[in-house]
Amino acid sequence: MLLTPRYGTGSLSDVLPSVLSYLGVPSETDRLGLNLDGVRRLCVLMIDGLGSEQLAAHPDEAPFLFARSTAPITAGFPSTTATSLSSLGTGLPPGEHGIVGYSVAIPGHKTLMNSLRWRLHGSSDAADLPFDLVPERFQPTPTAFERAREFGVAVVHIGPSMQNGSGLTRGSLRGAQFRTSVSLADLAAETSRALEPAGPTLVYAYHGDLDLVGHVRGPKSLAWRLHLKHVDLVVESIAARLPDDGALVVVADHGMVQLERRFDYDAIPEMRRGVRLLGGEPRMRYIYTREGSTDDVESAWRESLNDHFVVVVKDDAIARGWFGPTVTADAYARIGDILALADDSSAVIRSQAEANASRLEGHHGSLTSAELLVPAVVIRPDR
C-alpha cells in the first residue's frame, strides 16, 4: 500500500524549521513538537538509508537508537536522497524546491539530469553547467542554513569531501561552514568539536555508507546489520558528548527495499513504445512520453507491470499530494508525464542503459512504508 507524505506536520521538510524555532530564528515554528526548550546547540544527524521499519526490525544491532525511537516522520516524494536532502535543507516540500527526483528531464535539454551528481547524463564535468542548471538558480529559495546564519546562528556542515561545494550542496544545503569527515569515528569527533563553542549553533552531519551497503548487499544482509551496529555506536558517542544545552536529532532520508522481482525495460518492447525518456529510478520511474502517446504508454505500462506497480499520470500524482500542497511551474515541468511506483518488492530496471544499478540488491524511491517512514529520534543529555 502506498502512503502520502505528511508535509507540514511530520515530514523531513519540517525538521529544520522546527529546530530553528528553538535557536532564535524568527518566523520559524516547531511543526514536529520536538520540545527542545533551553537548547542552544543542536546537531541534526542524517543517516542515509535508515528507514524506521529497518530500525524497528533490528533492536539488537541498534539498541541505543531503538530504545529512544518514537513515532516516525515521512520522507518526501520521491523517497530518494537528492529530493530528501533538498527538503531537509530548504524546509520545503519537493513541489516547491523543485528537485523532484534522482533522474529528471529538464525543459530545453535532450538528456536527463542526475540530481544527485548534478550533471546532465553524458556530461563528464559537473562544473560545466548550462546557465539554467546553476544550482543557486535552479533552487533559488534561501536554505534553512542561510536563514539561520542571518540571525546569528553558527552553522556547520560535516560530511565527506565530495559534498563540499557539490551541486546539491550549493542548491539545497548552502550557507554552512563545511568540515570534512573521513570515517564514522571522525564524523562523531568533528560533530562533538563543532558543538563545543557557546552560543546558538546548528550542526548538520551526514553519513552515507549504510545506504551504500544496503544498495550493494541489500538491507536484509549481514553486512547491513553489522554496519548498523557501527552507526548506533556513533550516535551514542555523539550523545555522550552533548553540552548541557545541546540536543541531537537523528533522521534519515529514506528506507530501502530488497528486490525480489525485476522488470527489464530494455527487454520489453511494449514498455518502450512512445517513450521519449525514462527517468526516476527502479522503484519510481518517470516516463516522459512522445507527443500524443501518453494514453497508450500508460495502458502498456499498466498491462506490463500488472499489480506490482501503481501507474498514474502527472496531474493525478500532483492531486494526490505526493509533491506537497504547491507545485511550482518549474517543478511541474520536471515531473514525468507518467509515474510508475512499486507497490511491493519489484523494480523496473534497465539492464543495458543502467547495468550497474540494475544489479543492486536494495532500492528505494516509492511510497511504501518501508521507504517513506524515517526516524526522528531526539536525544538530550541525561534524558
Rank of each mutant, 00 (worst) to 15 (best):
G51E: 09
G122I: 02
A148V: 07
H109I: 13
P59T: 03
L242T: 11
V39Q: 03
A329E: 10
E146H: 06
G98C: 01
S345I: 09
D296Q: 14
P72N: 10
H227C: 08
A148S: 07
L36S: 03
R285M: 11
R350C: 06
S86L: 06
Q352W: 09
G108F: 07
P140K: 07
E96R: 06
M1L: 13
V235A: 14
L233M: 14
R261T: 14
L45Y: 02
G280N: 02
T143R: 12
Y206P: 11
S161H: 07
H308W: 04
S192N: 08
T169E: 04
S366I: 01
E196I: 12
A355V: 14
V251M: 05
D125G: 15
W322Q: 00
R6D: 02
L168P: 00
L12S: 05
G167T: 07
R320T: 12
A329G: 08
L129Y: 09
I379P: 00
V275R: 07
Y332Q: 11
L32R: 02
A57V: 00
M46W: 01
G49T: 13
S161M: 06
K220M: 12
S345Y: 11
C43L: 11
E281T: 04
L3V: 02
S166H: 15
G167S: 08
D337W: 03
R225H: 08
D232K: 09
V312Q: 10
G292R: 12
F145C: 09
Q177C: 12
L3A: 00
L228E: 02
T70I: 12
S87R: 11
K229N: 07
T169N: 03
V377S: 04
N306I: 14
E146M: 01
R262K: 08
A319E: 06
E291F: 06
A317D: 06
L168C: 00
A62D: 11
S221G: 10
